[in-house]
Amino acid sequence: MRVIVQAEPFDLGALSNAFAEGAGGAGAVVTFTGLVRDNGGALSAMEIEHYPGMTEKAITAMVDEARARWALLDALVVHRYGRLAGGEAIMMVATAARHRAEAFAAAEFLMDYLKSRAPFWKKELTSDGAEWVAAREVDEAALKRW
């Protein structure tokens, strides 16, 4: 199980391959990658702020909760902060299990919790200025299904 919080870009292919190779006994690996939407070219950059210390703790607690709910063989969460351009990868989640249902469910669970319970804040920079991204009701509501 690994939680990585970093400013630098990550190598999605290398991380995914290493994760799948290291997941001994797994029959299913699910990966999800979140990208910066460039909104048709309107976005000049996205700035992501986070709460060092709490971020790692909160994500680790989410991963522990996912392991308690599903028979996961491994899990990986990578989340970036700092200044990102449109199209860049912001974060990824990978889960490994014997069967795909557990891997998909755990990945969705982690995504839902990362959206609303990991201390990150996104700010969109456009030619019109800078604006904090507002949390969405639908993201908060998504937690209720777990």
Partner: peptide, 23 residues
């Protein structure tokens, strides 16, 4: 994460922020 009614006795660090937008 805590509620606004959380006690401060023994607390070292408090953080205030808007709803989180991770992922």
């Amino acid at each position: 994460l805590a509620g606004f009614d959380a006690p401060l006795a023994g607390v070292r660090e408090i953080a205030f922020f808007p709803p989180m937008t991770g992922g």
